[in-house]
Computed example of a mutant assay.
Amino acid sequence: MYRLLLFFMLASLVIEGCGSKQAPVRPQNQAERRALETSSYREHAELINKNGKNIGYIEVKESKEEGLDVHISASHLPPGASLGFHIYEKGTCKAPDFESAGGPFNPLNKEHGFNNPMGHHAGDLPNLEVGADGKVDVIMNAPQTSLTEGSRLNLLDKDGSAFIIHEHTDDYLTNPSGNSGARIACAPLAKSARRE
């Protein structure tokens, strides 16, 4: 009798335990939120290094504030480095030197660098602060840029534009690229790269 009673107690505990446990439910809005954040960026460009290897991407959208917001997500960069980051005038990235991107994006004919008393290039961006893991994932604003057709600030003109990462820190003063050294990564932005 004692064994039978023990059996029924254990059986009821097992049945109750099974009934109360449910499989974890993924929040319904999690994937949607990620998709909405991604889809808010109109333009997308793959970022390649000097060996032609994909190391990340850059996305661009019109800012609610001014100009464009630029989202860069990259890996395999020099760990802990502060690297010059600029927009160049042509949407062509031929490795290994990326000279195919031409000169700085400078439709307003300014000098280079945020500390330059003569103003700065429209394509000057803040230095990228790379993590100890060689990764960076930031959003920055480029106020003197546009995606509006016909604007001289348009990054998507007939030959597009390119985002370039340099090997050294931009000093925010010296022409043409702040003594930031060689071009080590490039992302071509052109109408053909547009996400549909």
Rank of each mutant, 00 (worst) to 15 (best):
G91T: 15
G67H: 06
I55A: 02
R34W: 12
S73V: 15
H86E: 14
N106F: 14
A81T: 09
P96A: 12
S63Y: 03
E43T: 08
G52K: 06
N106V: 15
L68R: 12
H112Q: 01
S82R: 14
A81N: 03
I58S: 01
K110N: 06
I48T: 11
H86L: 08
P96N: 12
I58D: 00
K64F: 10
N49E: 07
N49D: 10
N109I: 03
S75Y: 01
S100M: 02
Y41T: 04
L125G: 03
L47W: 14
T38E: 13
A95M: 13
I48C: 11
L108P: 06
N116A: 01
S82P: 02
G84V: 00
I87Y: 04
I55G: 00
A101T: 04
D97K: 04
G52I: 15
K53D: 11
E62S: 09
P96L: 06
G80S: 14
G102P: 09
K90G: 00
E46H: 06
A95F: 09
E46T: 12
S40V: 00
T92Q: 15
G113C: 04
E111Q: 02
E99K: 14
L77R: 03
I55Q: 08
A81H: 11
L83D: 13
K50G: 12
S73K: 15
G67P: 05
P104V: 13
T92W: 06
L108Q: 14
G67M: 12
I58N: 01
A35Q: 08
K64S: 08
H121D: 11
L47H: 08
G91K: 11
N51M: 09
G52F: 11
N106T: 03
L83N: 05
A101P: 01
P96I: 05
Y41L: 03
E89G: 13
H112I: 00
L47S: 07
G52E: 15
S63F: 07
G119R: 04
A74L: 07
D69N: 08
L83W: 07
L47E: 09
S63V: 03
G84Q: 01
N109K: 14
L68G: 11
S73T: 12
S82W: 03
A81E: 03
L108F: 13
N115M: 13
I87G: 02
M118C: 05
D124P: 00
E37S: 06
G102Y: 13
E111S: 10
A35H: 07
L47F: 14
N115E: 13
D124V: 08
N49Y: 10
F105S: 08
N116R: 01
V70C: 07
L77F: 05
V60I: 07
S100D: 02
K110V: 05
A122L: 12
L108G: 04
I55N: 06
G84Y: 02
H71R: 08
A81K: 10
I58H: 01
M118V: 03
P79W: 09
N109E: 09
C93R: 06
N115C: 01
E111L: 00
E46K: 13
P107M: 03
D124H: 13
K110Q: 07
G103F: 14
A45Q: 12
G52V: 14
E62D: 10
A122S: 14
V60N: 04
G67S: 06
N115H: 09
T92C: 10
S82D: 06
E65I: 05
E66H: 02
N51Q: 12
S100W: 01
P104Y: 02
K50V: 10
